[in-house]
Design a protein around this nucleic acid. Structure first.
Lengths: 371, 371
DNA sequence: TTGAAAGCGTTACCAC
DNA sequence: GTGGTAACGCTTTCAA
């Protein structure tokens, strides 16, 4: 192991402006300008340099660029627990859209636990241009750091307690819309399977639902705590299946699609028919329970769930989240802004239809902004 | 908007070595040394500088450091589709362990689609020290870039076709172990629900299972294509539930826990009892079907699934993946290495037990290395 | 149209 | 113990 023999490939140093300049017999300024498309470089020189760069596989050093005082192009990302199937979907969309805008995501945290100091420091050390947060629990910590260092922060699918920019779906309105749909379907006994008590998202959905019911003179028959997991939905479903048919609710709102899918599984396992049963093309089994959810994750929309749910305008949510962040990078003094996007009611077969309604249609102005 | 009035907070520039040096009345070398704990700085000076740095919220500029020729501390991360519940779990573990080692993850890609050129370039532009890949489809592209630029690359839960370092669970052995378990339980008609045909992971699991059966003189009764989704598991379950009890397999191996959970849901919805039925504490219902999975994701281990499955040693997989990567950063000429970790058989209640076996136990040497 | 040089924040080497 | 200085790769004046 002491032999200084070269490895298989001589490990050539990576190309830099200097190395290209020397190869081309020009100055590094010229190379820099040529590669950035500066107008005052002669076509001949440019071609020569371009060719050289391509051959060498030159990639500009983003770190050196940043040092000059420009943007780093890095966005800090803080993710909450990933059990909720909405978040993996959000992640995919976010990575794609960030890339389209030439931004890279620095993954600072994922999961339930809290962030250690070193990670929080990384946000500063790597000169992130901004920060995106989807976690319910962590924002306070990271928000403080961002605020103290002029790092813009935007929350996605969350609303900050005190301040901060955020984009999220109109949760209360969605809950209300679902209540309307179920009421129109002639349901009479309503239940809610709630989510995490500390997320504005869950609370708003439930509140919107319950208040709309109340406005129509209907009170909730029962309520279950579901947490954020499919497992929680199953537990609630088991309890509902165990109720005597007379007491059993005929319509259940699970505040997230994960919950709703677990709920449906439990009902089916308990031989309780769900919604306009999958078999019977609209012909509803006796004692069927209607289930509605919220989020519109792909797995919930398709069979075997065919969930009636509010579909979050995921692309628009992410797009506006990045818009907000970029705007705050331009102008750090921009006031806090809250963007609320209306979801779309997707009508599946997990809930009885109002007379005359058709399955599969989507209602509502997807992505229209309010607030 | 033309008023040049200062924003709420005067947006003080971030502290640097220079600003601290001026404040402390010393040179930047001294500040640098003091903050890095260099021995030859007088205690008094150090205290003064530490205090100043703390007050200013100083964070060293990782980009400037990297420019000096050191490590960037950045690891490029390429994630495949996130529907498989194993990947969100892997992501959480990876972020945590990377942070422990002082590494940050630059999220380059997530999802099914292919990577665009700009993203691939980012890998070079941000001077990543190495690259981690969990995707089945993308590696060839990114592998080429890494190989051409001396960026070490390690695959997690995947084995590269040609070359590259990788760490993954012993898939074939796990499949074989499950076959043994089911054979010992007295099952006679076996089925497999396969995964993506282009992932070594799925193929190895299935092969290990089938070959062990063959070695015991048993042939597969039937096989289903499940893809990588829970939905695929459900579809297979529906078809199994629809079979006449005589033809129906009495043991099914779904090559991933997501598949297995979907499968169980479908069986239960079809009133087909699963394993040592949840109700009957070991008392098995007539015509019960045993289901086993692979991965050991948290949701599958707990009720309502209580899946018998091979638990991947997730912590160890991630740890060894980072080990491999760090080793290759030290010595870029290190030969390709393949680390295979044995999983643990977790015995739940989704499959009939061999006579005398106990539920809940875990068997096997978790994380022992082979190859 | 091109080149030289300053400077971004840091570390390391060499003086003092 | 501490200070000066060069260097990392790049962009951007300012000169020519």
């Amino acid at each position: 192991m002491d032999v200084p023999a070269p490895p298989t490939r001589p490990a050539r140093a990576r190309a830099t402006l200097l190395s290209l300049a020397q190869a081309a017999g020009v100055s590094i300024s010229t190379v820099s300008r040529a590669l950035r498309g500066d107008a005052r470089i002669s076509p001949a020189t440019r071609r020569r340099i371009d060719a050289l760069a391509a051959e060498a596989g030159y990639a500009p050093n983003a770190l050196a660029r940043t040092l000059l005082g420009g943007r780093s192009g890095l966005i800090g990302l803080v993710l909450g627990p990933m059990q909720n199937p909405f978040y993996p979907a959000l992640l995919e969309e976010l990575v794609a859209q960030a890339a389209e805008r030439g931004l890279r995501l620095l993954l600072l945290h994922a999961g339930e636990g809290s962030m250690d100091d070193r990670t929080a420091q990384a946000l500063l050390q790597y000169q992130v241009d901004g920060c995106l947060v989807t976690s319910a629990a962590l924002p306070s910590r990271i928000a403080a750091i961002c605020a103290g260092n002029d790092v813009p922060l935007v929350m996605i699918n969350r609303v900050a307690r005190e301040h901060g920019a955020a984009v999220c779906c109109d949760n209360a309105e969605g809950g209300a819309r679902l209540a309307d749909f179920l009421l129109a379907g002639g349901h009479r006994r309503f239940a809610v399977v709630g989510g995490n008590a500390d997320t504005s998202t869950s609370l708003d959905r439930e509140r919107g639902f319950v208040e709309r019911l109340a406005a129509r003179g209907v009170a909730l028959a029962c309520r279950f705590d579901g947490g954020a997991t499919r497992e929680g939905g199953w537990a609630a479903g088991e309890r509902i299946a165990a109720m005597p048919p007379g007491e059993r609710p005929d319509a259940v709102f699970a505040v997230g699609d994960g919950l709703a899918m677990g709920l449906i599984d439990a009902l089916r396992a308990g031989a309780v028919p769900v919604g306009a049963s999958v078999e019977g093309e609209g012909v509803e089994a006796a004692g069927a329970v209607s289930v509605v959810g919220f989020d519109g994750v792909a797995a919930a929309l398709r069979p075997p769930y065919a969930l009636t749910t509010i579909v979050q305008p995921l692309r628009a949510v992410v797009r506006r989240g990045l818009d907000l962040l970029l705007a705050r990078m331009e102008d750090p003094a921009a006031p806090d802004e809250l963007v609320t996007l209306r979801g779309t009611l997707h009508v599946g077969r997990s809930a009885r239809l109002p007379a005359g309604a058709a399955t599969g249609a989507s209602h509502g102005d997807a992505g229209r902004e309010t607030g």
